[in-house]
Write a protein that binds this DNA or RNA. Structure first.
Lengths: 150, 150
DNA sequence: GATAAGCCTGTACCTGGGTACCGGATGCAA
DNA sequence: TTGCATCCGGTACCCAGGTACAGGCTTATC
């Protein structure tokens, strides 16, 4: 009676539509190790477990935030072995650090942009406004102050 | 005295080294419209004005923060015409909105990661921990709640 | 059993952002 | 004037992240 066995699951088209991705992308992710190879129908069609759609959303979310597919794959893989290594937590901690840096960078440039707006700068490079904030736009790992002649 | 005329300026190698970029990248940026075509020596070698190094740092900074080269080019171009359109300010305002969205996204995922660490999740996808925060990881423009079966 | 969706594999292509290599010309110093 | 480092333009290649297409097999429906 559970007769069909592997018969149930979503097909690629359904998953793709619900997750808002291309069908090709599903196969691409499978190749990349982001999606486990799903079960197949007798005829060889993929049948995805329902959680797949949610998983894709996780992937897409992580991606929008600057994680590469390899990173996402690692994160997912790290958790998917049983008796997982303490890896996931460590990676999460590392990612948090990274994210904090990104947020700091974004915050810095946001502030600069706000000043640009505020000061009515008329150019990114040749601004003529009085106390132009632009020359102080140093963010992240800029190698040296600004027009450092050395 | 000021005799040499166009004779002065930095050569590609100098600019590249000081700015920490590849020489090819300079020419690439020139093609892309990020760097104005510099003066040339009589023999045809590029001679960059000194500000170029700073400009490259601006470009690199903007880029690290998620601006595409096209966007950077537009921003730079917008400011480099005299009697500039009020464009720069508007773009800056738009970018601020965009950045705010990114920051919000990053903050959300940061929170989730923090919970992951906190709750000792053992997997991103099959976590067995009691009050696992993962199913609630909705960020940005995810199309529908989560495992929405509809 | 016929027929249209839908899915299969494989391969090729696209965009963004660079990088590398080639053969030839320049710059500059000894 | 010779010689080596540098630079020139052009073309080709690289990686990431997808997307498209071809030719053939399944699945679902009548």
């Amino acid at each position: 009676m559970t007769g069909g066995g592997v018969r149930d699951g979503l097909r690629t088209g359904e998953v793709a539509e619900r997750a808002g991705v291309n069908i090709q992308t599903l196969r691409y992710y499978e190749r990349r190790g982001l999606l486990a190879a799903p079960g197949r129908s007798n005829g060889g069609h993929r049948l995805y477990p329902p959680g797949t759609v949610a998983l894709l959303a996780v992937i897409k979310a992580a991606q929008r935030l600057g994680f590469t597919l390899d990173e996402v794959a690692e994160l997912l893989a790290a958790g998917s072995r049983r008796h997982p290594p303490p890896d996931l937590r460590q990676r999460a901690v590392d990612k948090i650090t990274e994210i904090d840096r990104k947020i700091a960078d974004l915050t810095a440039i946001r502030a600069t942009l706000a000043e640009v707006v505020d000061a009515r700068c008329d150019s990114l490079t040749n601004c003529t406004c009085a106390d132009c904030p632009l020359p102080y736009l140093t963010i992240g790992s800029a190698p040296r102050p600004w027009g450092d002649p050395a």
